[in-house]
Design a protein around this nucleic acid. Structure first.
Length: 566
RNA sequence: CGGGGCGUAGCGCAGUCCGGCUAGCGCACCUGCUUUGGGAGCAGGGGGUCGGAGGUUCGAAUCCUCUCGCCCCGACCA
């Protein structure tokens, strides 16, 4: 490919709206352009990257016996209504009506359509298992598109769906995907973790996410170096450091004028936050709930929601209405007379604490669980770095990561709702047991950049780079020798199946070299008169900037070996 | 949806508080000459409904009202 003929609009200055490194670099290096919030155009280089990723996805999906299909993006409401998600999902779904007034939507995922297809075509256990997949556009009206290509309203997704006759079969399909995903991300050159995750709006029992560590990631993941426990903080358990404060402190009131938050009281009394009980009043469907955490812990809303259903924080007047005390001085004691559920994190079972005294401008010292208050005990805190691993107790680390894929054991949620059934060996009708498995190609690309770049630009992993090598002839306009040497090389590589781009632009050496680094093709072959006088060209590794002076005839072998400059 | 920020040439910005000549600068672009292994130099040149609408004023990029868009934090999010 000739550089001069390709649309590669590199720019020197970073666009002001970009914050994520991958976003800045993709804009600067001419891979993408933004059309509107959450809508991106992939320019030729960007699309080549996505295409290479998709090729890997197809190879690995086909290798586990999955079959590619194509699904409509425009979908009737009916199947969504049958699964219930037409009503569960709100603003996030793009909805419209066709000319006949029928309700339609734009597909944000394809469980319903795939299940509908299965319901029509699958009759017998003999037809199972099946794995169907597609690589297609999804549309979601995201409340906040962000970080460039990482969270967009329209995006490509590889999603596959497994259909099995038994739970064991589902586990096998799930395992096939796990293994395929490991191969895919390894081939794409990513650092990643497979973590336990929330099932969210997909429903189902077991779910994992594949996470690529990056500061631009939106998720926090918990990692245990000792036993390998890995989970999204959305579901991660943890054992907080044990209470270190004696249980024999006497119960007494402490005057704390105008000091309401743990932080304020902590500073006022010169006691660390972990000496406090944080009392948070929440309003759930079943009534008010008092959640108790240690002062240094954060309430894990999802964990709590699994216990009490949807809830919201009580406002200041509501706190006064329910507990009869001003917010800021509430505590877990003496609520026997009113009907309120108290849920406490187990870390509070031992130790004595300072907490609100249930009267204005006073806190209580020496408060102990079981002695001074009763509660239902549940893990409702957010795992923090340094907490103990729930499996082995070793200290946990927390990392930011980009969610590049997720896999779900769905069970029969969709098959039951859409009546996708089969006849088993004894002739009885059963719902098909399903799994669904998504990968975001754009997120793979963005994560690869996040994990592989330097001051000068992108450093693509070989498998997903838009080209294998960039040939950079310097001063070709004045030197027919350089020009013909460069083109000879290009043709030689092309003949041998190596995809090269040749920078045939009539530009100064500096500009071409800067652009080559920015664009990030992993290997460069620099052809200049100086080296050519000795019959040599330079093979340069983008990551290391190491150069190897070689004869043009050796280029092919050197590229294939290539290790010493990587 | 709550909070904050920003819309001035293709890109990056100054000018706005405190209204006043013809709206500027850098990069990019066009022409010519020189230059040519890490984003060249000189000279000349083109390009603007100052996001939009309405208002105040002798006069609005600048003040007021409304509105649209984009970004960030939070909420939300397979």
């Amino acid at each position: 490919m000739r550089f001069s003929r390709m649309l590669i609009p590199t720019v020197r200055e970073t666009p002001s709206e970009a914050t994520a490194e991958s976003h800045k670099l993709m804009q600067r290096a001419g891979y993408v352009r933004q059309l509107a919030a959450g809508l991106y155009i992939y320019l030729p280089l960007g699309w080549r990257v996505i295409s290479r990723i998709n090729r890997i996805l197809r190879q690995e999906m086909d290798a586990i016996g999955a079959q590619e299909v194509s699904m409509p993006v425009l979908q009737p409401a009916e199947q969504w209504q049958q699964s219930g998600r037409w009503y569960d999902i709100k603003e996030e779904m793009f909805r419209l009506k066709d000319r006949g007034g029928r309700d339609m939507c734009l597909g944000m995922t394809h469980e319903e359509m795939m299940t509908w297809l299965a319901s029509r075509e699958i009759r017998s256990y003999r037809q199972l298992p099946q794995i169907w997949y597609q690589i297609q556009t999804k549309l979601r009206d995201e409340p906040r598109p962000k970080s460039g290509i990482l969270r967009t309203r329209e995006f490509l997704m590889k999603d596959s769906y497994s259909f099995d006759a038994s739970v064991e079969g589902l586990r096998e399909s799930y395992k096939l995907h796990e293994d395929a995903y490991h191969r895919i991300f390894t081939r794409c050159g990513l650092k990643f973790h497979q973590v336990e995750s929330d099932t969210g709006m997909m429903g189902g029992a077991v779910a994992h996410e594949f996470m690529a560590p990056s500061p631009s990631g939106e998720d926090d993941i918990v990692l245990c170096a000792a036993c390998g426990y890995q989970a999204n903080v959305e579901v991660a358990g943890s054992v907080p450091s044990a209470a270190r404060y004696g249980e024999d402190a006497p119960l007494e009131d402490v005057h704390t004028p105008e000091k309401r938050t743990v932080e304020e009281v902590s500073r006022f009394l010169k006691e660390p936050p972990e000496r406090f009980i944080k009392s948070i009043l929440l309003l759930a469907g079943e009534g008010p709930v008092l959640a108790l955490l240690r002062g240094d812990q954060q309430l894990h809303e999802k964990k709590l929601q699994r216990l009490i259903g949807p809830f919201r924080a009580a406002g200041k007047p509501e706190v006064k209405d329910v507990l009869g005390v001003e917010a800021g001085f509430i505590g877990p004691m003496d609520h026997e007379d009113i009907h309120i559920k108290i849920i406490a994190d187990p870390v509070l079972k031992t130790g004595s604490y300072i907490t609100g005294a249930n009267k204005p401008h006073y806190h209580k010292r020496g408060v102990r669980a079981q002695v001074h208050f009763q509660a239902a005990w549940h893990d409702i805190h957010v795992a923090a770095a340094g907490d103990g691993c729930p499996r082995c107790g070793a200290p946990l680390a927390i990392e930011k990561a980009i969610e590049i894929a997720n896999i779900f054991q769905l069970g029969t949620k969709y098959s039951a709702a859409l009546n996708a059934v089969f006849l088993n060996e004894s002739g009885a009708e059963e719902p098909i047991i399903m799994g669904s498995y998504g990968i975001g190609p754009a997120r793979i690309a963005a994560a690869a950049i996040e994990q592989n770049h330097d001051r000068d630009g992108i450093i693509w992993p070989e498998a997903i780079a838009p080209f294998d090598v960039e040939i950079v002839p310097l001063g070709a306009g004045d030197s027919p020798e350089v020009e013909s040497a460069a083109w000879d090389l290009y043709r030689e590589l092309d003949k041998n199946g190596i995809e090269a781009i040749i920078d045939d632009r009539d530009l100064r050496a500096g500009v071409k070299l800067k652009d080559a680094d920015l664009i990030g093709i992993p290997k460069q072959i620099i052809v200049g008169q100086r080296n050519l006088n000795e019959g040599l060209v330079e093979l340069k590794g983008r990551r290391t900037k190491e150069c190897l002076r070689i004869r043009p005839g050796e280029a092919l072998d050197a590229l294939r070996a290539g290790k010493e400059i990587d």
